[in-house]
């Protein structure tokens, strides 16, 4: 795929050495086109947040390649990363902890400008612009973070990321700490900004409804590996991988007439320090067979723009419901 803004190949991250490192990310590949939003969905231990940090080189990958606009990021020396940080930015989950409580909003946003020598001579003006872009009054720039609500703080975090005019934003669970009514405000803001600035995003979330709303394509992760990746509406409407199916079935629908959650998945998520052999999902998969323990299933093209990692050619129509 040429022309991709971001191209990730065989990305792998292990934490800690020794015989049993934490295998947070294993051989993950995907690409993001300019202006495209890719969702990463998964439960704890899926490695979704780690991937976001590897792409911004906040963590160093164990193996694999990350190409941003053609430049290799994974092995770039520290001094070359500053250019990356003008082009790719991050929005964090926790709107409280991601803003330094001792700095005024002016300095929180201004720091991004200063770090890259932007808006010299019109710093205050530019900070005001950025605040209004995210729907905050410019006059509030002299306040401290604790004077804002959670949703407003998340807006400040977004303004900080926008300050360098990035092409890609990695949004790590940007609304999961917010109340539903406030979450909706922030989601709409992010959609507006995406359209207005042509932003590409890597949107990390555990909430399938949010991901479906925000994303063009979705990658479903389990224990550091991609289980299924493809267009958002296809993956959520007709999940192909047993894990995607289970994840959808387990997500509560805000509809009392929807079928009650079927307990398709038994047991716990295995430890990423000792992932199962072969397919990592096989210990909880309702269709698992002996062959699943043998090989790591490669991603197969399903023909409808989606790929999935399962050795079964087709799934029985309905998994056994407990």
């Amino acid at each position: 795929m040429s022309g991709a803004l971001l191209e990730v190949r065989g990305l792998t991250k292990h934490f800690g050495g020794g015989a049993h490192p934490v295998r947070a990310v294993e051989d993950v590949s995907f690409a993001i086109q300019p202006g495209e939003v890719l969702g990463l969905v998964g439960e704890s231990g899926s490695g979704k947040s780690t991937i976001g940090r590897l792409i911004l080189r906040l963590l160093d990958p164990t193996a694999g390649s990350v190409r941003f606009g053609g430049d290799e990021i994974a092995t770039a020396p520290e001094r070359k990363l500053k250019a990356l940080r003008r082009r790719a930015q991050m929005v964090f989950q926790d709107p409280f902890a991601s803003l330094n409580p001792r700095l005024r909003v002016r300095d929180i946003i201004g720091e991004a400008l200063d770090a890259h020598g932007l808006a010299r001579g019109r710093r205050t003006e530019r900070i005001g612009e950025l605040m209004e872009t995210v729907g905050l009054p410019a006059a509030h720039m002299t306040r401290y973070p604790h004077e804002f609500s959670g949703g407003q703080r998340q807006r400040i975090g977004i303004a900080r990321a926008l300050a360098v005019e990035p092409e890609l934003i990695v949004a790590d669970e940007p609304v999961s700490a917010l109340d539903v009514s406030v979450q909706a405000q922030v989601l709409n803001l992010m959609q507006d900004l995406r359209a207005r600035f042509g932003l590409a995003m890597l949107f990390i979330s555990h909430d399938l409804d949010v991901v479906e709303l925000m994303c063009d394509r979705i990658a479903v992760l389990y224990l550091g590996r991609v289980m299924e990746i493809g267009p958002a509406e296809i993956v959520t409407a007709r999940p192909r991988h047993p894990y995607t199916q289970a994840l959808l079935a387990a997500s509560p629908k805000a509809d009392p007439d929807a079928p009650k959650l079927s307990r398709t998945l038994k047991g716990d998520i295995p430890s990423p320090m000792a992932p199962p052999s072969g397919c990592v999902f096989r210990t909880r998969c309702p269709y698992a067979m002996p062959a699943c323990a043998e090989v790591v299933p490669p991603l197969r093209d399903a023909g409808d723009g989606r790929a999935y990692a399962c050795i079964l050619d087709s799934l029985p129509s309905r998994p056994e419901v407990a």
């Binding site: 911004l56 906040l58 930015q89 989950q93 902890a97 991601s98 770090a115 900080r160």
Partner: peptide
Amino acid sequence: PFVEAARALG
């Protein structure tokens, strides 16, 4: 996270 945010900003 705000230290990580500062690193991400360069």
